[in-house]
Design a protein around this nucleic acid. Structure first.
Lengths: 192, 192
DNA sequence: CGTATTTCTTAACTTAAGTGAACGATCTTA
DNA sequence: TAAGATCGTTCACTTAAGTTAAGAAATACG
């Protein structure tokens, strides 16, 4: 399981054995049951997550309705907004499936970053990469219709369609569950 | 003009005179005329921008139509996707107004980052902050209607509505210019 | 195992966005 | 300054998403 984390890190920097051991000694790994809520709206938290196995999601409750806006699966990292700006969280984070995560708080990161400045460089590279990806993602969302977005999702993250309930997918695509259902029927009809 | 840049940097790290001088000696400042295209689709570039004054935009050409997806104004920084992933650009960048920018290429950044490791830390903090902001932005976009998005824009970036042509705003809001026009008329009617 | 809950689909109706076209206003530029 | 291009608005029509409601299917759980 640790290897997944080291594989991920190796995309950005090369770790010595000493550094690997320092990481392991932090005891970051957590098993989390499906449905567990990791973060609630209004809560302050220091924790950042890295998904080794499973799936977690971000959702808001707006007018009593759940609106899912993001999914994180294997090899995805998530530092909640409230950790960055030290304010209460605007959203919830929960487990879509039984998952294995690393959970690290700001203090631990601070500590390891000062001990091994390399990590700062990794974090910089990683955030920059993520930011650019996120930008492209947003651009695609803006410039396409719900139907195109759904077809695009089938191409890019086919696993999500299998492992995530449709009403969560719907808000992720910026529409209502009924519209997603209809849209899927429309696509099937076109194919035949 | 330089002070704007130093003001910005001071939000993240504290610079010594030596560091400031090193920055100035890089000769980063550029004046750019309205309409100038800074980056074209298909082009490879090393340049990142910081807006001291004016406004630049990202747009795609899809089926012969311009789709504007982002605006950068005073104190905004932009590292194009093609700089991060070293691939040809998917989009254009052009000047909405006569602007003053800093233009820095990857080599210069590399150089200054190794000379002053502090800059790596600043870049990390800045990317993380931007990433979190961007995420919230995207979430707001997903969870609201075109009309709500427009009203939201009036609140958050009222200047944009003044300084940017409406057909560019339209695609920024994920709709057609005619729809924005209609939507504005609808809002005015509601108020009265 | 059976009941309760959640999830997905369908349908009829409403509302809003997309489309194509026309027109005046504004901005460019030769 | 005159001619051409661009821009914003309006309109009629089409298409698709939102809304409300109902029922079927799948899932959870005592």
């Amino acid at each position: 399981m640790q290897d997944i984390l080291f594989d991920f890190i190796s995309k950005y920097i090369t770790l010595t054995e000493e550094e690997k051991n320092a990481l392991v000694s932090l005891d970051l790994f957590r098993s989390v049951k499906k449905g567990t809520i990791l973060l609630k709206e209004g809560q302050k938290s220091q924790d950042a997550y890295f998904v080794l196995k499973g799936c977690i999601r971000i959702y808001y409750i707006i007018d009593g309705e759940e609106k899912t806006t993001a999914f994180y699966t294997e090899m995805d990292a998530l530092t909640p907004h409230c950790v960055i700006n030290k304010a209460p969280s605007e959203y919830f984070i929960s487990c879509v499936e039984d998952s294995i995560l690393t959970v690290s708080n700001s203090d631990m990161e601070e500590e390891i970053n000062t001990k091994f400045p390399k990590f700062d460089i990794m974090c910089r590279k990683f955030s920059e990469e993520l930011l650019a990806k996120q930008q492209i993602n947003f651009d695609e969302f803006k410039t396409s219709s719900p139907e195109q977005r759904y077809l695009n999702l089938i191409q890019k993250r086919p696993d999500l369609i299998q492992r995530v309930p449709q009403h969560q997918l719907a808000s992720y695509l910026g529409i209502k569950p009924q519209s997603l259902s209809r849209l899927r029927a429309r696509i099937l009809e076109k194919k035949s």
